[in-house]
């Protein structure tokens, strides 16, 4: 039996295709990006080696630093506003209400929609003249608040965060819901017998026992915020005047509009390192 299960030829046959495609598409490109990031290069010819020049420029580039601040701001909003909303709904639904399945299904719909569709849809919602939001504000007598939400520097950032938060509330709710559901019913039964109220049960029993899933959700929110691209690209492309710029959209502009391959690669490497470091740090610092 063991000879069958350690047949070297068979092992190679099963594993090598995956390893090859993995090396070619994930591993080598990282190495290439690191290499490019040391070059001053516009994509034509070979480029000149400038060592850490791009990185030094990066940390004095206020447009880049602002984009990093925006992504952390987004992480903050998503952890402290979106996740509590998700948690609230997860707890309510896991507690067993009428229509539990219906609500779970509906809340999750935006998650499966394409970000391009969501972006287009929200840019219509935000439209200054005919958008749903301004129409609604005018209808309830708050017409003075109506404005071009995505076109103004002061509101564009928050306006472009909201659709992403809206889209993923259901996603985090589902992860937390599955965590809450996996807690043994006996524990709830015991709490009920002791006369604990639903809110007390949630804070004293359910939430502490949900720590592992909550950790997953916070981690996803954090890393997802640092990588965010799609919705910002569709809604504002980083504008107006860079007020919604995040590292990914900045990288994209630098590479494909300014043809600064080296500098853009330095941003790409920054994003990868940032995500890896924060993942490891988060995992080490927060023990549950």
């Amino acid at each position: 039996m063991n000879t069958v299960l350690s047949d070297k030829k068979a092992i190679c046959f099963f594993v090598i295709p995956t390893i090859l495609i993995y090396i070619a598409v994930i591993f080598l490109p990282i190495v290439m990006s690191i290499n490019y990031s040391m070059l001053k290069w516009d994509g034509i010819g070979k480029g000149t080696f400038i060592g850490f020049g791009n990185y030094i420029e990066l940390f004095s580039d206020s447009r880049f630093l602002n984009s990093v601040v925006h992504s952390f701001l987004f992480a903050f909003v998503s952890i402290f506003i979106q996740l509590p909303i998700s948690l609230l709904f997860a707890l309510i639904l896991a507690n067993g209400v009428k229509g539990e399945k219906f609500f779970r299904t509906v809340y999750f719909i935006p998650v499966i929609m394409s970000t391009v569709v969501i972006g287009q849809l929200w840019s219509k919602i935000y439209n200054a003249d005919y958008g749903l939001l301004n129409t609604f504000l005018k209808a309830i007598g708050l017409g003075s608040l109506a404005r071009d939400w995505l076109g103004r520097e002061d509101t564009a950032l928050i306006a472009s965060f909201i659709p992403i938060l809206w889209q993923y509330v259901g996603y985090h709710m589902l992860i937390m819901y599955s965590g809450a559901k996996s807690i043994s019913a006996d524990i709830y039964e015991a709490a009920k017998i002791d006369g604990a109220s639903a809110i007390k049960t949630a804070f004293k029993i359910t939430i502490p026992l949900m720590k592992p899933v909550l950790k997953v959700s916070v981690m996803f929110s954090l890393i997802g915020s640092l990588k965010v691209f799609d919705l910002i690209y569709v809604l504002t492309k980083g504008g107006p005047f860079f007020s919604t710029e995040v590292p990914s959209t900045y990288m994209y502009t630098i590479i494909f509009d300014s043809y600064r391959y080296g500098y853009g690669s330095a941003i790409a490497v920054f994003i990868v390192v940032e995500c890896l470091v924060l993942t490891v740090l988060f995992d080490k610092l927060i023990k549950v």
Binding site: L28, P29, Y36, K227, S265, A268, V272, C275
Partner: peptide, 10 residues
């Protein structure tokens, strides 16, 4: 854990 950004340009 690898963001797709790293692979885009290469």
């Amino acid at each position: 854990m690898v963001p797709i950004h790293a692979a885009l340009l290469p």
